[in-house]
Amino acid sequence: MKTTSPAEGAQHAVYQVRLPVSKRTLDLVGDLIRRERNRLGTRWRKVPAGTQALIVLAVLRHDQRLADMAGGNAVSASTVRRWVQEVLRLLAARAPRLDRALKKIAQRGGVVVLLDGTLIRTQRRTGADNRRNYSGKHKARRNHH
């Protein structure tokens, strides 16, 4: 017999986690989203910009699963994925180009530049791209842009 209801317990469970981001970061991302919505002339969204910012930061910073964040906020996992991509695009647009940043550092007399080489766990790639993004150190795929 097939059923769509859970075997036992409540249909929806909610849990809280502490998200290690500052109010300043949350406000920055929320403001970016608000400005983008205004630029696009978006009249209605499922959640306010601040909530979208919190959901995206939870996915990026706390590694929350898309489906987990979606279900608790009455949106689909694909919507959360789209929100994450939108925020990453907005943040990337604010970042200085590496060549310009290095030139500015050199003009100010800087001689040493430290680049963050953090390996980030990602999902396995398929096909020809499979091996070149594999991190032997972490036994996982890594983002390579």
Rank of each mutant, 00 (worst) to 15 (best):
38 N>Q: 12
123 Q>M: 02
81 R>V: 02
108 R>W: 00
14 V>Q: 09
104 K>W: 05
116 D>T: 06
48 P>Y: 03
103 K>Q: 14
120 I>A: 06
127 G>H: 12
126 T>M: 07
91 L>S: 00
91 L>C: 06
15 Y>T: 14
42 T>K: 14
58 A>M: 07
130 N>P: 03
60 L>I: 13
126 T>R: 00
85 Q>S: 10
110 G>L: 09
73 N>C: 04
51 T>P: 10
44 W>E: 03
49 A>W: 03
94 R>Q: 14
42 T>A: 09
31 D>A: 14
7 A>N: 11
2 K>N: 04
138 H>Q: 07
29 V>H: 08
16 Q>C: 13
53 A>M: 04
31 D>L: 14
94 R>D: 00
68 D>S: 10
46 K>M: 14
98 L>T: 15
14 V>R: 09
86 E>V: 00
36 E>L: 07
52 Q>V: 15
32 L>K: 06
9 G>D: 01
112 V>I: 05
19 L>R: 08
97 R>I: 00
98 L>W: 11
70 A>L: 02
105 I>R: 13
85 Q>V: 03
54 L>C: 07
52 Q>E: 15
46 K>P: 12
102 L>F: 08
81 R>E: 07
27 D>G: 03
80 V>D: 03
81 R>K: 10
119 L>E: 14
133 N>Y: 15
21 V>M: 06
67 A>W: 03
88 L>R: 13
130 N>E: 14
62 H>A: 15
121 R>V: 15
66 L>D: 06
38 N>E: 13
87 V>A: 00
83 W>N: 02
125 R>Y: 14
16 Q>W: 13
9 G>K: 04
95 A>P: 03
92 A>H: 11
